Amino acid sequence: MSGHIAVIGAGLVGAGWAIVFARSGHEVRVFDASETIRERLPSHFRASLEAMATYDLITDVDMVLRRITVCCSVSDAVVGADYVQESVVERVDLKREVCAEIDCYLGPLSLVGSSTSGLPASSFTEGCANRERFVVAHPVNPPHLVPVVEIVPAPWTNDTTVQKTRDLMQSVGQAPVVVTREIPGFILNRLQGALLDEAWWLFDQGYATAEDIDKTVKYGLGLRWAFMGPFETIDLNAPTGIDDYARRLGPMYVELAEGRPPAGPWSDDAVRRATEERRAALPADQIDARRAWRDNRLMALVASQRKLVP
């Protein structure tokens, strides 16, 4: 890419995107409608990059910082950009408004990816003159530490947009996943939602505490899932592979599914009890500190994964 990359919306996700692109060598221009956020971005970037440097995830904090410019308008950020990462709040009306403004300043080959967690691009890009160059590029928060990004086209997104967005994400160290067509929640949140629904049901019915359900994932499923997914997991869990696993254990999973009640709203009582349990384990005034702990653990994990043979 010969031009810069623009990031519109600089909350936790947008700021993480700016780091993703800048650490890989791109010039990045960032805009957020909040002056307060814009003023605190330089210190936020430095703190995040210095933390990454302690885990050898970057080598030169100042060099990365010099590639990031905080802008005072959408036009200042977008004009001349090869790629725009839209990361505003998850509201259809706001995304529609912001994408329309971005659309006004796009160059003839510029692409736009949206950080939406579940809104399809078709719900907010239909009115854009360049709608074929808009696509969902959904990261996991924080994107500079968790590399997966889901690329989801609207019905009118052209194939070139999908391919070029995938290539860009690959080139900046992310792990792009192409979803062939729109589906609510995409892939990651549908998988997460299925696990959460079962976790809430088990908790609500009193089969285990929230802590023990978390332990089951933390010390069981999560250890394998840190470096391989569900299909590879079961492929390795039967003597001759995935078809063997399906023959041996498929009927058990069918029986479990048939006995599982339909998913419904998480009960108010379960949410109340889970909240009480979590606040007893982690008081509300310690959540920010625990979030920082999480990010440090993620950095250590990413650093460790880089040493593993794929």
Rank of each mutant, 00 (worst) to 15 (best):
P261Q: 11
V302T: 14
T54H: 06
F227M: 15
A18C: 05
A210G: 13
S117D: 06
R306E: 14
R133N: 04
D295E: 14
V30C: 11
A270C: 05
L196G: 07
K215R: 14
V70N: 08
E86I: 02
Y55T: 06
D269H: 03
L195D: 10
H44A: 13
T240C: 10
I19E: 08
P108L: 11
V162I: 12
C128I: 04
V74R: 05
T116V: 02
D285T: 09
P265W: 03
D285L: 05
S24M: 02
R23L: 02
I8E: 09
V135Q: 01
Q170A: 14
V254K: 09
A284P: 00
G206Y: 00
A292Q: 13
E35Q: 14
S75R: 12
R279P: 00
F31H: 14
S114H: 04
G11V: 03
E150N: 02
D103G: 02
D295Y: 02
T69C: 00
S2L: 13
S24H: 13
R38C: 07
I287E: 10
E232K: 13
S115V: 07
R294E: 11
M299A: 13
Q192H: 06
R131C: 08
A292T: 09
S123F: 01
V146T: 09
T160W: 02
R131H: 12
R131V: 10
S110A: 15
A129I: 05
R290S: 09
R29F: 06
G185P: 06
F134G: 05
R46I: 00
T160S: 13
N130M: 07
D244I: 01
V74A: 00
E255K: 07
P147F: 03
F231W: 12
M63L: 12
V20A: 07
E35A: 15
V92C: 10
R67K: 14
R66E: 15
